[in-house]
Design a protein around this nucleic acid. Structure first.
Length: 744
RNA sequence: GCCUGGAUGGCGGAAUUGGUAGACGCGCCGGACUCAAAAUCCGGUUCCUUCGGGAGUGAGGGUUCGACCCCCUCUCCAGGUACCA
């Protein structure tokens, strides 16, 4: 939406009350938080969901109203600041606003409400700079000390959180402080900042932390946390409040006013029809009927939501000529009258189009189908279960099948899904778990966010109106300058910045951008595959860097992995298509190569487990480089190499495997194992340091003692030179790694 | 504003437990092969250097025999989020 108009088509946008369906995700808020502890997810993603669910603890406090019988209930996380409540605020939509508005304030309040209604939620928060509000003329009584506090209406309080009303404590809340200052409302300090007091300073208001209570009668001197408990206890004893937990999470609006999407399996009927449908013991309607009927009033008549019985499912969308809106804000389905209006048999559930004549018998009643449809989440929240049992006509998934397959081992997806899909799917899964459909409590035990691949590095030169080049660090708004993209040969790096070669005073903007159509920097994988093959393309994507990182693309880099694969091919197959004669039938005899092979098995196995694919590729390159260097090696060594490569480059590894007399497919062979004993060398390299500085290295046998190594080290010329004229104070020896001589 | 990541050669990155910083690859430089090119192979490639060394992982400080790694302060970049009482 831009300036009150839709971005597409420029239509005016307005808010309208609509009948909607919501899923009660708030009932699972606690479960969704609780479940986090068993998830192997990035810390930051768990934190994101936690913040989104937004659990807070505090108290509901009841304020009596002067001259009214109603009670004004507010939610606060800081009952310890109750003595500092110098005014109250109602959200403009709060139901008590009209009642509390005195006649002389009526005009102002009405105007203010109208203004607030015009603003979208976004605008209301966008215009957060200056606080606005209007006094109602009424007062509330503070339950803790009987003080009379004025009641205001302001849009910085929203109806959808807590009770839609607050007690305002300007001394200890930034927003209230801002508002009170603007409206000239008294500010009463009731908490002291302990850190400031310790330094003999006075508390800087607004002070929003916890501290020591002051100006609070018998509570003065208590810590915030003690005070909170005592204030709540006091209120509870007088039935004027109670401890309370609130969530930011709202119930989930699950209906859409469009054609596409699963229609809600509900028929709206009269009260008589509804009761009749549920009366019979064996009624097919009973299975899905809610405990309390769901109703709404339409043109003075109350309509009852009768669930479509199982024998009528699935309810499918009607074939229609047009998906155009009907103009009322309802779904296009509301215009498909031969689908919309039905004759319903309240005993059997049978449903006929209303274009047919009404069948005989008083068990047939008229009904109207629900026209809202479901959002795409209706499918995306459980597909991973359904994939395991896609043809099951009776259930989402057979619980036995669910138990066999379990849930996805790992979910790889963007972080933008954390507060949408991943939260929604967890909710659905928990509901299905409670219903006994699935046997695992959580759908995605392990989560990984892959990083985005950016376009190639671009060098951009900015020029002013006269075509004069401008240094990029002086450019604040790029739109005011002409941009020219430069090739790498026109720029060079000086210090930390990229500059123009011909004028090194001009800095160049050098960065990678998101791949996008508009920028034209997208890379077509089909082209890569046709030039380099699918194996090289896969391998390069993995070689680029850590999977979670955002990385710039560099098409030239694919040459490297392509060469690696071609070199491997040449190692195994000669130009004539024969197996290379350097590959021997006997077991590996080259000790050094065998050691490297086992190191590679270990590293590849562990790195795949950790999803460190880039280092898997590096390690395989190291091994191949060594194989190329030596004169000959065993076919077994190549076979293991191919097995390790197989998950990364399945085609070439399978082909070479077959050429090495592989009878079964390489992917059916067991993963190679490494022999710990093959990893230990007879000799190890010890790095020699003097005062932490590298001063040479030494090969010693693995079981050399500290004394032996020390003696050898002190014999080295470079070591001697470094300690000349100094006294050796200490020698630190890390077996197999390092010997550090500390000399002063 | 707040929260979360991150910063290492010309570039992508490696260093998994505090123990040789720059693995592996790209690019670049030099050479071999070739009539030539492609392909391939060999050598070099952090910076400075008086060739002994010295400096170096965004900046500054600290802990340690030893710090890319731990602690403090700051800068920049990326992502998320915002009247939630």
């Amino acid at each position: 939406m831009i300036d009150g108009k839709s971005e597409r088509g420029d239509h005016p946008v307005e808010r309208r009350k609509l009948r909607q369906w919501v899923l009660k995700i708030t009932a699972y808020a606690e479960r969704l938080l609780e479940g986090h502890k068993d998830l192997e997810w990035p810390e930051s993603s768990i934190r994101l969901q936690k913040n989104w669910i937004g659990r807070s603890t505090g108290a509901e406090v009841q304020f009596r109203l002067e001259g009214h019988d109603e009670i004004l209930c507010v939610y606060t996380t800081r009952p310890d600041t109750l003595f500092g409540a110098t005014y109250m605020v109602l959200s403009p939509e709060h139901p008590l606003v009209d009642k509390l508005t005195l006649p002389e304030q009526l005009g102002d309040i009405e105007n203010y409400k109208a203004e607030a209604a015009k603003k979208s939620d976004l605008e209301r928060t966008d215009l957060a700079k200056d606080k606005t509000g209007v006094f109602t003329g009424s007062f509330a009584i503070n339950p803790i000390n009987g003080a009379k506090v004025p009641i205001w209406v302001a849009d910085y309080v929203v109806m959808s959180y807590g009770t839609g009303a607050i007690m305002a404590v300007p001394a200890h809340d930034e927003r209230d402080f801002e508002f009170a200052t603007a409206m000239n409302i008294p500010i009463q300090q009731v908490i002291e900042d302990d850190a400031a007091s310790a330094k003999n300073e006075s508390t800087q208001l607004p002070f929003c932390g916890t501290g020591t209570m002051v100006n609070s009668d018998e509570y003065t001197g208590l810590s915030s946390s003690e005070g909170q408990a005592k204030v709540i206890a006091n209120l509870e004893s007088r039935d004027l409040g109670s401890a309370s937990v609130q969530y930011k999470l709202r119930d989930w609006l699950f209906s859409r006013q469009r054609y596409w999407g699963e229609p809600f399996p509900v028929t709206w009927v009269s009260k008589q029809a509804y009761e009749k449908a549920l009366a019979a013991e064996d009624s097919p309607f009973r299975e899905f009927a809610p405990e309390e009927p769901i109703t709404f009033e339409e043109e003075g008549e109350v309509r009852y939501a009768l669930p479509v019985p199982a024998n009528q499912l699935p309810l499918e969308l009607p074939e229609v000529e047009s998906y155009e809106p009907v103009g009322t804000g309802e779904s296009p389905l509301a215009g498909v009258s031969d689908w919309l209006d039905v004759w319903l048999n309240v005993e059997t559930g049978a449903t006929l189009a209303s274009t047919d004549a009404k069948p005989e018998g008083n068990q047939w009643v008229s009904g109207t189908r629900e026209t809202n449809t479901m959002p795409q989440w209706a499918g995306s929240c459980w597909y991973y279960l359904r994939y395991c049992d896609p043809k099951n006509p009776n259930n989402v998934i057979d619980p036995k099948v669910s138990e066999y397959w379990g849930v996805p081992d790992i979910y790889i997806g963007g972080a933008e899904h954390v507060n949408l899909h991943l939260l929604y799917a967890r909710f659905w899964h928990q509901v299905l778990f409670d219903a006994g459909v699935t046997t695992s409590p959580e759908p995605f035990p392990k989560l990984l966010h892959q990083g985005m691949i950016l376009g190639e590095m671009e060098f951009t030169l900015y020029s002013g109106a006269e075509g004069n080049p401008v240094s990029s660090d002086t450019v604040e708004n790029a739109k005011n300058f002409t941009q020219k993209s430069l090739s790498e040969s026109e720029v060079e790096k000086v210090g930390d910045s990229w500059v123009l070669k011909e004028n090194t005073a001009i800095k160049i903007d050098a960065r990678s951008h998101k791949m996008s159509k508009s920028r034209g920097n997208a890379v077509n994988p089909d082209k890569l595959i046709s030039s380099f093959g699918a194996d090289a393309t896969r391998l390069f994507l993995m070689f680029l860097g850590p999977i979670e990182d955002m990385k710039p693309w560099n098409t030239k880099g694919i040459e490297g992995v392509s060469r690696f694969l071609r070199r491997l091919w040449r190692e195994v197959v000669t130009e004539e298509g024969q197996i290379n004669s350097k590959l021997k039938d006997e077991h590996e005899t080259n000790k050094a190569l065998e050691k490297l092979l086992h190191e590679t098995i270990k590293k590849v196995t562990e790195d795949i487990e950790r999803l460190n694919f880039n280092t898997v590729v590096s390690q395989l390159m190291i091994l191949l480089n060594q194989m190329v260097k030596v004169e000959s090696y065993s076919k077994d060594t190549v076979r293991v190499f191919l097995q390790l490569l197989n998950p990364m480059a399945p085609h070439i590894s399978e082909e070479l495997w077959k050429r090495l007399d592989g009878t079964v497919s390489i992917s059916d062979t067991p993963w190679p194992w490494f022999d710990e004993s093959k990893l230990v060398a007879d000799e190890v390299k010890i790095v020699l340091q003097v005062n932490g500085k590298h001063r040479g290295e030494l090969m010693v046998s693995v079981d050399a003692s500290k004394e032996d190594v020390e003696a050898l080290a002190l014999n080295q010329e470079r070591v001697q030179n470094s300690i000349e004229g100094k006294t050796v104070r200490k020698v630190i020896y890390v077996p197999g790694r390092i010997l550090n001589v500390v000399a002063i």
